Simulated scan of single mutants.
Amino acid sequence: MRHMILPLCLGTALAACSPSAEEATEETAAEYSAGDYTVAINDIARPDADREADAARKPGELLAFAQIDKGEIVGDYIMGGGYMTRLLAIAVGNDGKVFAFQPEEFIAFRPEYATEQEEAVAPYPERVTPLRGAIDEPQFPELLDTIVTVMNLHDLYLAGMPEGTGEKAIAALFDSLKPGGTLVVVDHSARSGTGTQDSDSLHRIDKQAAIEALTAAGFELEAESDLYSQPDDPRDANVFDPVIRGKTDQFALRLRKPG
């Protein structure tokens, strides 16, 4: 299992960090690298569409940032087509578990999500358990070491969602983690200062708004990554626009539940 590390020192706080704390953080982070997850990336059960997406989605680097260990119990929250589910299934190893959660709201909007869930979990019956439920009530059957949610946090703030869905769902994720467990969030960046207002129209969320919503629930921000940084993205176009699709600026956050 991963070692506990101290939160990253940010801004002026960097000067206050002792050298030993910085060294401990760097040493632990160095234990994880993209190469550690080659077996997961080369899994024969992964479809061609996944492999074609790898150049942009950088699966090895993301799994390293998430610090996924063998034997972990992991939740893939809002699994979509199953891209992350398939990677996690191999990354956690024979002794690990993955709970792949698909919201009923998504299936109602697009029934293919149900079929895609079934197809994603089928190759891994011993490791992956499919779950369905309300988007703000993911009923994971046991406490998790890690939860990963990729390009879906903004969905909690879509116009069709009941008021308070975001707050309720984030609280549920917090409660679903073991003390010391981590939440990894990747999403499309909105323009700074726009909060959640572009979640429905552009399928984007302001990184600072995301951080504030997550830390308000009790999470502590541990690390940020520029893995998916695209400085040329003006962040004012719908992420499905062919001009920008696959080239959006995205943020990646790793947060920890205290404990």
Rank of each mutant, 00 (worst) to 15 (best):
P138C: 11
L144Y: 11
D145L: 08
D145P: 09
T146W: 00
T146A: 06
I147Y: 07
T149K: 00
T149G: 00
V150Y: 11
L153D: 05
H154Q: 07
Y157N: 08
L158T: 13
A159H: 15
G160Q: 11
M161A: 08
P162K: 01
T165Q: 04
G166M: 00
E167T: 15
E167F: 04
K168H: 13
A169I: 15
A169D: 11
A169F: 14
A169E: 07
I170T: 01
A171D: 13
A172P: 10
A172E: 13
L173R: 12
L173F: 09
L173Y: 09
L173I: 02
F174E: 15
S176V: 05
S176L: 07
G181R: 02
G181S: 02
V184L: 01
V186W: 00
S189V: 06
S192W: 02
S192A: 06
G193H: 14
T194E: 10
T196H: 01
T196D: 13
T196F: 12
D198M: 12
D198H: 05
S199L: 10
S199R: 01
D200A: 14
H203V: 11
R204V: 03
D206Q: 05
K207H: 14
K207Q: 08
Q208S: 14
Q208W: 01
A210V: 10
I211F: 07
I211W: 06
A213S: 12
L214Q: 15
L214Y: 15
T215S: 04
A216T: 08
A216D: 15
A216W: 01
A216Y: 07
A217V: 03
A217I: 04
L221D: 09
A223R: 12
A223F: 10
